[in-house]
């Protein structure tokens, strides 16, 4: 057998001992403790000991979704940050980039995810969807077409859906922020 140990001694004077915590855990610890969120976003940990599953509430203070309170779940697996976190909207909302099941169309959650991105970038990206809904990448086609065709009507639909209204036969969840 080769004598690796002698190489180690030469090269590795400073005693290094590795963390038993998984790489994903450490990275999540770093991401979470360095979150720099505006007052419109709040994280919540149902089990504070479990850093890999939590929720994010976004309460936009401007734009057409102002006044709403939107709840997302984050699920992070052991392959993070090689894989993006899994993010879902927990409410049925009227939004061009969120479908009725809560799937979100945000490029950095799928095709443009890179390990250099972090939880902060995902959260900021989600908030941006509420400020600038994107009709070109629709998941809710009805909503996207309305936004393209008639912005006024779209805004009206958004307001009505947030109060629990029905649009084109779909009843949406009440998401108005409690005062």
């Amino acid at each position: 057998m080769i004598k690796i140990w002698s190489m180690k001694k030469n090269e590795d004077q400073a005693a290094k001992k590795k963390p038993k915590t998984s790489a994903a855990q450490i990275r999540v610890q770093k991401d979470l403790t360095e979150l720099d969120l505006p007052s419109t976003m709040k994280t919540h940990f149902p089990d504070p000991a479990d850093l890999l599953n939590f929720t994010l509430t976004i309460t936009p203070d401007e734009g057409m979704y102002k006044g709403g309170s939107f709840l997302f779940t984050f699920k992070i697996n052991a392959n993070y940050p090689h894989e993006p976190p899994k993010v879902k909207c927990e409410q049925k909302i009227y939004h061009p980039n969120v479908d009725l099941a809560g799937n979100v169309c945000l490029n950095i959650l799928r095709e443009d995810w890179k390990p250099v991105l972090n939880l902060n970038s995902v959260m900021v990206g989600l908030q941006y969807l509420f400020l600038e809904p994107n009709a070109d990448d629709p998941l809710n086609k009805e909503a996207a077409e309305e936004l393209k065709r008639n912005r006024e009507q779209f805004i009206y639909n958004v307001k009505s859906s947030m109060r629990g209204g029905t649009i084109k036969g779909e009843k949406y969840d009440i998401v108005i922020k409690e005062q």
Partner: peptide, 13 residues
């Protein structure tokens, strides 16, 4: 290489 992923909107629409 990053795993091939398609934009979810393309898949949907």
């Amino acid at each position: 290489n990053k795993p091939t992923a398609f934009p979810i909107c393309t898949i949907a629409n």
